[in-house]
Simulated assay, not measured.
Amino acid sequence: MKVNIAEFIISAVGPDQYPDDALPEVALAGRSNVGKSSLINRMINRKNLARTSSTPGKTQHMNYYRINEDSMYFVDFPGYGYAKVSKTQRATWGKMVEKYLSERDTLKLVLLIVDLRHPPTSNDKMMFDWLKHYDLPMCVVATKADKIPKTRWQKHIKIMKQELGVLSGDNFIPFSSEIGLGKEELWGLIDGYVLSSENETPDTEDAEIDANESQQVGPTEA
């Protein structure tokens, strides 16, 4: 998808604040500080539309970003698993996210964002299992690949897949917001879901890129 316009629309706290224009939505779920905002900025070629923060747990709402006015939305979920957020607040976020995932008709794809440098957390595994159980369209996006030497990418990918339970037909894309690794592959996957009609099923062939292939290096983001 060629991104001409990208804009922040709303920080929503419930269904009454979600956009009602019926545009397709791609949701991003992941633990706090895993790089969801940086991923959005890389995907839309902007440095700071989605605000990044060194303080985990800052995103407390469903942040909607509209792409190309009439194409789609990225929906950034509150980060999960941050201990300094109160149990009551985490429970509130959890209910909001679960309600959205189970009831939102315009949801086309969930990107489960994980950190490729480390094995998945218990919350990562729980989210993966939940999405699988409810048969929601999903892609695991393993960020921060640039923080690992290329020679170790395949080892980390293997560990991530094994511990999450990723199967050969599941979508899995290594990604780096810093160097642009995985950007084109991820847009290709998103396009398949967003552009497909309601009665069509997009190709779910494993979207993993070959970590040994050379990648075009883009500018470093803030």
Rank of each mutant, 00 (worst) to 15 (best):
L131G: 09
M62E: 01
L28Q: 07
L131I: 08
S168R: 10
A12F: 02
D16P: 15
E200F: 14
L112G: 09
L181H: 07
T59D: 08
N68I: 08
T106K: 01
N68S: 11
N68H: 06
G57K: 06
V114A: 07
A142Y: 00
K36W: 11
L112M: 08
P120F: 06
D70P: 01
G165K: 11
V85D: 01
Y80C: 11
S71K: 12
Q162E: 12
M72L: 06
G30L: 00
P149A: 04
Y82P: 03
L181K: 02
L189M: 10
V13I: 12
G30S: 06
S71I: 14
T88F: 04
G30E: 02
K132S: 04
G30H: 11
T88E: 15
M72D: 02
M160V: 11
E178N: 12
D70C: 05
P15I: 10
S38R: 01
A29T: 09
Q17A: 07
Q154N: 06
L136P: 13
V34K: 11
R46Q: 14
R66E: 06
P24Q: 08
V75E: 13
N48R: 09
I190E: 01
T204S: 10
K161Y: 03
M1S: 04
G81A: 07
H133V: 14
K147E: 11
D191I: 03
Y64K: 14
W130G: 14
T52S: 08
V85M: 05
R90A: 08
V140Q: 05
D210S: 01
R66Y: 13
E7T: 12
G188E: 10
P19E: 06
W130H: 03
Q89Y: 09
E213V: 03
D124F: 00
K95Q: 04
I209D: 04
F77E: 07
R152L: 09
K108Y: 06
D210H: 06
I159W: 02
P119K: 10
D135V: 00
N4G: 15
V141R: 02
F74H: 08
I5H: 13
Q162N: 15
